[in-house]
Design a binder for these strands. Structure first.
Length: 565
RNA sequence: CGGGGGAUAGAGCAGCCUGGUAGCUCGUCGGGCUCAUAACCCGAAGGUCGGAGGUUCGAAUCCUUCUCCCCCAACCA
C-alpha cells in the first residue's frame, strides 16, 4: 500500500559553509527519502536555504555588498555540496528569497491575523543609529544592573548568570563580537538608544491546551530529546512570541502601516516547508499536488534537524499549523544531538571545523555518510575524530564490506568469465544466509522508519560479516584447484553473487553511490525496489571495480593540520 | 537558576521502555588462510554497567539521592 511521506529537513542558514556537524543532523533525511522511494511510497523531501535575518544583513552592510549576494553565494554552495556532493535526493531544494515563499508566508500571516492568532503590541527596544537598525538582545552588551559587570549581554549576564531585559542594561552598546574581526567602534558609534516599536505577536498561549494534547497523543515515536524538551517546555507555560522585526532583510509584513517591518525567522523560515511544497507542485505542472501531502490525514510527516531546533518544530510550527487549520502536523521528530570534533565543539570563529566543501574535495561522500550514520549523534553527543574515521573506513567499509564484494566479484570474473549459474539445491548455511537477507528488508526497513539509522546500517553490515565467514569456510580459491570441483565452486560463488546483489539494495539508502557501483559490476540498471530479489538463473560479471580507496595516514595528518588555524 | 541529553572493557557505542547468568565495532595478544585494498577467518585477555541507598528470589534495566560531562546559552546543527 502506497503512503505519502513528507520529509522536512532543517534549512541551513546562508551565511557560511556547512560543516560535518550539519551533515550529522541532516543525513537521516536522505536515508528516509531513499528508503521510502524504494519501498514504493510517494515521497516529498523538501528543504532550502534560510536567507534572511539580521546576521546576514549586518555582515553585508559591513562588507558593502547586498545581503542577497551573501545568501546567494552560500545557497549555491549548499546546493552543490548537499546534492552533487553528498547525493541528497531532495524533491525540492529552494530558498526563502523566492516570490513563492513570500506569497505563502504573507498569506499565512494574514490568515492567522484574521483568525485572531496575531496581535500587535508596542514595546521599547534598543536602536543603533550607527547600524541604522534595532538590535536583537544578544547583539547588545552593557553594564549588568545586578552585579555591575561591564560586558553583560542583552539577554543574560555571563558574570552573575542573571537573565536580563536589555533595557535594564546601563550604557548599552553594540556587542563588538557581532562585527567583523578587528572592527573597532568609537563609543559614540557603538551607542544605542531606546526607541518605541510596534510588533506582531503569535498567540501561542491560546494554543497551550491544544498543543499539549497533541504532544501527548503523537510524541511517542519522537527522539527522546525532542519529547523530553517539548513536554517540559509546555509544562512551563507558553508565552506569546514576537514574530516581526525592524529590519529590511526579510519577508515584508503584508499590512498597511507596517511597511518597514519584516516577518521573523520563527514564523517565516518554518513556513518554508509549506512554500517549498507548493513550489514543488508548480514545478511538477500540477499546482495542487502538494495537497496529497498536506491535506491528507493518511500522509506521514517527518522533520529532521539538530537538537537546538526542537522547539521550532515541536511547538511553534505545529502551533502555526493548528492556528491555520486543515494542514498536516508533524508525526515524527528526528532530532539529533551534537557532533563534536576531536573532543571539542565545532566553532566557526576558531576554525575548529571540518568544512563540507573541503571534505568532499578529498574524500568519498559515501564514506562520510557511513561514518555519520554508524557513529553519529543519534542518542547522545558523539565525536568526529579523524583517526577514527580512517579506522572505520579502512576496517569496516573496505575490510568487511568492500572486501567481500571484491573477493567474490574477482573470483567469479577470473574463473567464470562467461558467467555462473545459480544452483538448484542449497546447503543449510547458504539457505540461512539468504534467509537472513530476505528478513533484513523488514527489519532494516522498520528501523529506518523509526529513525534508528545506526541500528539499520549495522544490521546490513552484520550480514556482510556472515557472508565473509561462509566464504572463508568454503574457500573457493582452494577448491577451484581440486579436480572435478568446478561445478561446486560455480554454485558457491553464484550464491555469493546473489548475496552481494541483495546487499546492494539493502545499503542503497545509506550508501547510494556504492550501491550503484555494485549494480554496474553486474550490468544492472539502478536498483529497483525494497524487497528480496529472486535469484537469477545466470550471473555475469561485467566489470570488477574497487568500491573505496584506502585512507592513508598522510591524508589524515593533512586534514588535522587544517584545524584551528 | 531551571530544563533536556549522557555516564556500560583501552577507545567509540548498543542493551534500559516490556528486570532473569554483560554485548557490538575498533584496538591488544596468540593462531589460521592467501581469492581479496597487509584486507579475511578462529581463539584469548580485558567490565564490581559513574557513587550510595532502596524495591525484588533476582537490578545495567525499576525507585530515591549524589557526583561528573555536553547542550539550551557569542559564532554554531
Amino acid at each position: 500500500m502506497n503512503k505519502n511521506i513528507f520529509i522536512g529537513l532543517a534549512w541551513p542558514y546562508a551565511n557560511g559553509s556547512l560543516h560535518l556537524g550539519h551533515v550529522s543532523a541532516f543525513i537521516g533525511a536522505d536515508v528516509l527519502a531513499r528508503y521510502y522511494r524504494l519501498a514504493g511510497d510517494h515521497v516529498l523531501f523538501a528543504s532550502g536555504s534560510d536567507c534572511y535575518g539580521t546576521p546576514i544583513a549586518i555582515a553585508a552592510a559591513e562588507r558593502g555588498i547586498s545581503p542577497a549576494e551573501i545568501s546567494e553565494k552560500y545557497h549555491a554552495e549548499f546546493k552543490e555540496t548537499l546534492i552533487n556532493g553528498l547525493g541528497f535526493t531532495y524533491d525540492i531544494y529552494t530558498k526563502t528569497t523566492t516570490d513563492q515563499h513570500t506569497k505563502v508566508v504573507q498569506e499565512l500571516f494574514l490568515d492567522l491575523y484574521q483568525k485572531g492568532f496575531l496581535y500587535t503590541k508596542t514595546e521599547k527596544a534598543l536602536f543603533s543609529p550607527y547600524l541604522d537598525r534595532f538590535l536583537p538582545d544578544r547583539y547588545v552588551e552593557g553594564v549588568c544592573p545586578k552585579c555591575a559587570f561591564d560586558g553583560a549581554r542583552g539577554d543574560q549576564c555571563d558574570n552573575c548568570g542573571s537573565l536580563l531585559d536589555p533595557l535594564e542594561l546601563k550604557n548599552p552598546r553594540i556587542n563588538p563580537k557581532i562585527l567583523e574581526k578587528n572592527k573597532k567602534l568609537t563609543s559614540e558609534e557603538a551607542q544605542l538608544e531606546v526607541r518605541e516599536t510596534e510588533h506582531f505577536y503569535l498567540k501561542l498561549s491560546a494554543l497551550q491546551e491544544q498543543l499539549t494534547q497533541w504532544v501527548e497523543e503523537t510524541s511517542e515515536p519522537w527522539r527522546a530529546n525532542a519529547r523530553g524538551f517539548t513536554k517540559s517546555f509546555l509544562a512551563g507555560g507558553l508565552h506569546d512570541r514576537a514574530v516581526t522585526r525592524d529590519t529590511e532583510w526579510g519577508v515584508p509584513v503584508p499590512l498597511p502601516g507596517y511597511e518597514t517591518k519584516r516577518i521573523y525567522v520563527w514564523f517565516e523560515a518554518v513556513t518554508g516547508y509549506l512554500s517549498a511544497s507548493k513550489l514543488w507542485a508548480e514545478q511538477q505542472g500540477s499546482p495542487d499536488a502538494w495537497k496529497a501531502f498536506w491535506e491528507n490525514e493518511a500522509a506521514y510527516h517527518y522533520y529532521v534537524h539538530g537538537k537546538d531546533n526542537i522547539p521550532f518544530h515541536t511547538i511553534i510550527w505545529p502551533g502555526i499549523l493548528m492556528a491555520k487549520g486543515g494542514l498536516n502536523l508533524p508525526n515524527q521528530i528526528v532530532s539529533s544531538e551534537y557532533l563534536n570534533l576531536e573532543g571539542k565543539q565545532f566553532s566557526t570563529s576558531r576554525n575548529w571545523a571540518v568544512w563540507l566543501p573541503d571534505f568532499l574535495a578529498s574524500f568519498n561522500a559515501d564514506t562520510l555518510r557511513y561514518f555519520l550514520i554508524a557513529n553519529g549523534p543519534e542518542t547522545g553527543d558523539s565525536n568526529f575524530v579523524w583517526a577514527e574515521y580512517a579506522t572505520v573506513v579502512n576496517g569496516e567499509l573496505i575490510g568487511t564490506f568492500g572486501n567481500l564484494v571484491n573477493r567474490v566479484l574477482s573470483l567469479s570474473a577470473k574463473h567464470f568469465p562467461d558467467g555462473l549459474s545459480f544452483p538448484i539445491e542449497l546447503s543449510d548455511k547458504q539457505t540461512e544466509l539468504l534467509k537472513n537477507l530476505e528478513l533484513a528488508f523488514g527489519a532494516i526497513g522498520k528501523d529506518i522508519q523509526e529513525g534508528k539509522f545506526r541500528a539499520a546500517l549495522r544490521e546490513a553490515f552484520a550480514i556482510a560479516g556472515q557472508a565473509n565467514r561462509l566464504i572463508d569456510e568454503q574457500a573457493p580459491w582452494k577448491k577451484i584447484k581440486e579436480e572435478g570441483s568446478r561445478a561446486e565452486v560455480e554454485a558457491d560463488l553464484a550464491v555469493f553473487l546473489q548475496v552481494i546483489r541483495t546487499l546492494a539494495i539493502l545499503i542503497n539508502p545509506f550508501l547510494p553511490r556504492t550501491s550503484d557501483t555494485i549494480n554496474a559490476c553486474f550490468g544492472f540498471e539502478v536498483s529497483t525496489t525494497w524487497e528480496y530479489p529472486a535469484p537469477l538463473q545466470h550471473y555475469k560479471i561485467e566489470k570488477v571495480e574497487m568500491l573505496f580507496k584506502k585512507i592513508e595516514d598522510e591524508q589524515i595528518e593533512q586534514a588535522k593540520a587544517k584545524l584551528g588555524s
